[in-house]
């Protein structure tokens, strides 16, 4: 069977906007993603090296902010588990489920491999500095008109345009 066509982007945007609005109305906070990655990292380090987390400032500040509970008892962790389920179901319905390594037509396998990993590393660091990623800082920040969120949004997209030329071989 062939893959189903993607949804009209404006319709998808409208639905996403309504979802974000509902989220803010119900919970008082927006959507997010990188926070779950942070929780997962903290939980992993905690499990492997307990003494390390209790003596390092970053983890101390984290546990102070999220007192008394495991880092995995976190709103964003539950949300991200939902994202995995939702995306999987969507892929299932639209015949897009298959193990696939995707790369630009002229990029080598290794270049894409290193790029994907390095890109992830940059997001890991950047989303901590920016206090959120495209979802948590840029999109949710725009919805509540946060100065910081909109500033981060401009820098994410501006930055990507600025660097696009140098990495064109990866994609074009």
């Amino acid at each position: 069977m062939n893959e189903t066509k993607y949804m009209n982007p404006y319709l998808a945007g409208l639905l996403l906007g309504i979802l974000l609005l509902t989220t803010i109305y119900i919970t008082g906070r927006g959507l997010g993603a990188s926070g779950a990655i942070k929780s997962f990292t903290v939980a992993t380090v905690e499990a492997i090296a307990q003494s390390h987390t209790s003596s390092t400032k970053f983890y101390q500040e984290y546990s102070k902010e999220h007192q008394g509970t495991s880092p995995l008892m976190n709103w964003l962790v539950f949300e991200i588990v939902g994202v995995l389920i939702g995306a999987f179901l969507s892929g299932l319905v639209s015949n897009r489920l298959n193990l696939k390594f995707e790369k630009g037509p002229n990029a080598t396998r290794n270049a894409r491999l290193i790029g994907a990993f390095l890109g992830g590393v940059l997001w890991g660091i950047g989303s901590q500095l920016g206090r959120g990623c495209t979802s948590g800082a840029a999109l949710s920040g725009m919805a509540v008109m946060s100065t910081g969120g909109i500033l981060t949004m401009i820098c994410i997209f501006g930055g990507a345009y600025g660097f696009a030329y140098f990495f064109r071989k990866l994609w074009l």
């Binding site: 500095l129 206090r131 495209t134 979802s135 820098c155 930055g159």
Partner: peptide
């Protein structure tokens, strides 16, 4: 979202680089 000017800008640019190099954002 709180506003920490420099960390928002530099964090954003780093994420921008990550976007073009990695091809994704976390979500």
């Amino acid at each position: 979202n709180p506003t920490f000017v420099w960390s928002a800008i530099i964090g954003g640019i780093i994420m921008g680089a990550g976007f073009i190099i990695g091809g994704f954002c976390p979500g």
